[in-house]
């Protein structure tokens, strides 16, 4: 009997280790409630704020679009001569893996909305082979996009005339869960990081509410 309980404990331990959990990034606030006379401490996590942008089909894209979806976000611009093409190549690999999966979306935000109009993004997305229902290329008000990058996704996006292409931006791929919480940031130029991102999407897909 004692042996059996040890065996059960070991089994639980091994399977327990297999369930890797992803961290929840960003600041968190603590909410203390009194329920039935007892103090209950609850964490409130940072979430991606509401937004309103236009996709490559000219359709409004906002927080309702990403409701109950896992998605990968990034910031780029069409004429970027440096890291964007590498990011897009890695994103394309990840996209192909989840093409047709209704639970996974991709949101690529332009940081050069003056140039990257709806029609420019439409052509870019078509050439890349992206379906506009699952991989959304977003444009809109420049300041809103920059604020969304900084506050929602912890990403940098700024004009910089000394940079090739005229902008400086982080090459991160940002993984967001169904509750709009950032769960991981990956180097978009690294093939290894793309593999890790795929593993982490699997973890999120299997995560229970």
């Amino acid at each position: 009997m004692k042996k059996l309980s040890i065996l059960i404990l070991i089994t639980i331990f091994i399977f327990g280790c297999g369930n890797k959990k992803l961290p929840i990034l960003g600041e968190r606030a603590v909410d203390i409630k009194i329920i039935d006379g007892k103090e209950v401490v609850d964490s409130i996590y940072s979430t991606v704020p509401n937004f309103s942008l236009i996709n490559q089909d000219g359709k409004v894209t906002n927080e309702n679009t990403i409701k109950d979806k896992i998605y990968v976000a990034d910031f780029f611009f069409v004429t970027c001569p440096t890291i964007c093409p590498r990011m897009k190549k890695n994103l394309l690999t990840i996209y192909k893996k989840y093409e047709g999966n209704p639970n996974v979306l991709f949101l690529s935000h332009t940081i050069d909305p003056d140039h990257d109009s709806v029609s420019v993004l439409n052509d870019f997305a078509n050439r890349l082979g992206a379906n506009s229902k699952q991989w959304l290329f977003l444009t809109g008000n420049r300041d809103s996009i920059y604020q969304l990058a900084a506050k929602g996704y912890y990403a940098t996006a700024l004009p910089d005339s000394t940079e090739p292409g005229g902008y400086v931006h982080s090459g991160g791929l940002i993984l967001v869960d169904k509750k709009r919480r950032v769960r991981g940031i990956y180097d978009g130029t690294s093939e290894k990081d793309a593999d890790v991102l795929i593993t982490d999407i699997e973890i999120l897909l299997n995560e229970k509410e």
Binding site: P81, C84, P85, K88, F124, L128
Partner: peptide
Amino acid sequence: SNCHQTDGSGLAKLY
């Protein structure tokens, strides 16, 4: 190589 890739294979119908 950023656009045309290290192996020269390009990228989709973009590059």
